[in-house]
Design a protein around this nucleic acid. Structure first.
Length: 516
DNA sequence: TTCCGACAGTGGGGTCGCAAT
DNA sequence: ATTGCGACCCCACTATCGGAA
């Protein structure tokens, strides 16, 4: 199959807003692809690469050669070139990779170049990724989409699962099973504004567990072999020796456990996320790092204990199995209750101890891997501040033509100026985007040449600091990027405060007081 | 007919490792 | 030694479609 076939299908998918139409386009193409190129086609059209990453991003894709007129590149040829490019990573030869990228882009037409560019930068923007592709595979292979989903959960790779479905139908999909040593797509949580609201959603009684601010881990043990995976199924076994030892210390030898790893201070309070994140990401000097920044693991779910797969069991039974396999000290603190007051108190205690919040879990739900089901609902406390809009950036995609991303500042009474604390684009409705774009253009201090086609060109519009906006955020963290040494975590817009003047905005001192 | 679950898109800060400067 | 880039850790929120109620 030719790459141009995929580029055309992608364009058709993007052109139709209806999901059913997108599914038809994708299924039609999957019906034509040969078995040896099915994985490549599925990967590309769901915005992935079979190589996963190849060390190429937006910067490597500048100064590309002129396109060809005639499309001749096959999927196999493109895949082979990407494989060679990946093979160059870590060899110190950026020049060789650029040469290969040039070969690739010089061998395809303009439409294919555009498709490849978006694929390699992870911005396919055709309104279809995994979710739509699952339906398309189900249609093309004439199997129930639930079977595709189930297989994907257990295998973690849609191209592999899709190719199996196209090849052998339901029979081959049913052959996928939980394999110790192969990561399962982790179950995700929805969120709610309060514990009471979460309890209502989950149905009482429910379990309430501490939400720890660390890195999600899935630990597999088979005999004396242990493997640890992250949320995106990356293998980090070598970076977390404490966790490996903890799992080897358990009596069971056939285990798959779900949990969170984090750095604790000697007094038991959690380190800031930045500390945990840096420790987990470090691949060098782990032996000495574990002395200075030791990691602790807390498990909250069990997918396999003693040779039995537990994914389809209700939460309560999985947790009972977890308690048989893991000592209490390694299990995330948990309370089962139907009493909202008791649950709120548990939440308050967790937050006072420095943790992120709680997760409320419905007792009856199976491990719905890879989906954000209503089985788990996270609740976190929310801070708010009134800040001043210092600048705005032109949006992209569906936000093109709107000033979208806000630069936020706190008031500094000593200088009469404002100190930038970060940016946000979240919480804005189309109506608010329209309103703020109009307002911003009136107070623009730098040339606002309209939505520049290419980012970076008149991208940021400086504003006279007059507008106050109420911002919600999860916390304040240390920052080397911003002049105040602080940045907001997960900032989002709640509403504008036309009743407030900029000098009435929250001050730098107020923000500093929130920082741990 | 209305409601609501699931998805995709639009970007945020921080950290590490590597290659180029 | 410093800087830029790619990848990945954490992520919130809105609009939209289409099946459920």
């Amino acid at each position: 199959m030719l790459l141009i076939d995929l580029a055309r299908t992608s364009a058709a998918v993007a052109a139709d807003s209806a999901r059913l139409a997108k599914i038809r386009h994708l299924a039609e193409l999957l019906g034509r692809v040969g078995p040896d190129e099915a994985e490549i086609a599925i990967a590309y059209l769901s915005g992935e690469l079979p190589q996963r990453q190849i060390g190429v991003g937006w910067r490597s894709l500048s100064d590309l050669p002129e396109p060809r007129q005639i499309a001749t590149a096959t999927l196999g040829q493109v895949d082979a070139l990407l494989e060679r490019i990946k093979a160059q990573t870590g060899t110190g030869s950026q020049a060789a990779r650029r040469e290969l990228l040039g070969q690739l882009f010089g061998a395809v037409t303009r439409q294919e170049q555009s498709f490849l560019h978006r694929l390699l930068t992870g911005e396919l923007r055709q309104g279809a990724l995994d979710g739509v592709m699952i339906e398309a595979i189900a249609r093309a292979a004439d199997v129930p989409s639930a079977e595709v989903r189930r297989a994907l959960t257990l295998r973690g790779s849609l191209p592999a699962v899709g190719a199996a479905a196209l090849r052998g139908g339901v029979a081959e999909l049913k052959a996928f099973h939980l394999e110790v040593g192969r990561a399962v797509a982790p179950m995700l949580a929805q969120s709610a504004a309060s514990v009471t609201a979460a309890l209502e959603k989950a149905g009482a009684p429910a379990a309430v567990e501490w939400k720890l601010d660390g890195v999600r881990v899935q630990a597999h043990r088979s005999g004396d072999d242990v493997a640890v995976f992250t949320r995106t199924l990356d293998d980090i076994t070598g970076q977390v020796p404490e966790l490996v030892e903890a799992v080897l210390g358990l009596p069971g030898t056939d285990l798959v456990l779900d949990g969170e790893v984090l750095a604790l201070r000697p007094d038991g309070r959690p380190e800031p996320f930045q500390v945990t994140s840096g420790r987990v990401a470090s691949r060098t000097g782990v032996a000495s790092l574990r002395e200075t920044v030791p990691l602790t693991v807390f498990f909250f779910d069990a997918l396999r204990v003693g040779g039995a797969d537990l994914l389809d069991l209700p939460d309560q039974e999985r947790h009972a199995a977890l308690e048989t396999a893991v000592p209490a000290g390694l299990i995330t603190p948990r309370l089962v209750t139907a009493d909202a007051e008791e649950a709120e108190a548990f939440f308050g205690d967790a937050v006072r101890r420095g943790h992120e919040g709680v997760v409320v879990k419905s007792l009856g739900t199976p491990y719905a891997a890879g989906r954000r089901g209503a089985g788990w609902i996270k609740v976190k406390p929310r801070h708010t501040l009134d800040l001043v809009v210092l600048a705005a950036e032109w949006g992209s995609g569906r936000r093109r033509g709107w000033l979208s991303n806000l630069h936020l500042g706190a008031y500094d009474p000593e200088t009469g100026g404002f100190v930038m604390l970060g940016k946000t684009f979240k919480g804005l409705t189309d109506e608010l985007l329209t309103w703020q774009t109009e307002q911003f253009l009136r107070i623009a201090e730098s040339p606002a040449d309209g939505p520049a086609g290419n980012p970076g060109d008149g991208h940021v519009v400086m504003l006279t600091p007059t507008l106050v906006v109420e911002i919600a955020f999860d916390g304040v963290q240390r920052s080397s990027r911003y002049p105040g040494g602080m940045a907001l975590r997960f900032a989002r817009v709640l509403r504008y405060r036309p009743d407030k003047r900029p000098e009435e905005a929250d001050t730098v001192a107020t923000v500093r007081a929130i920082m741990p």
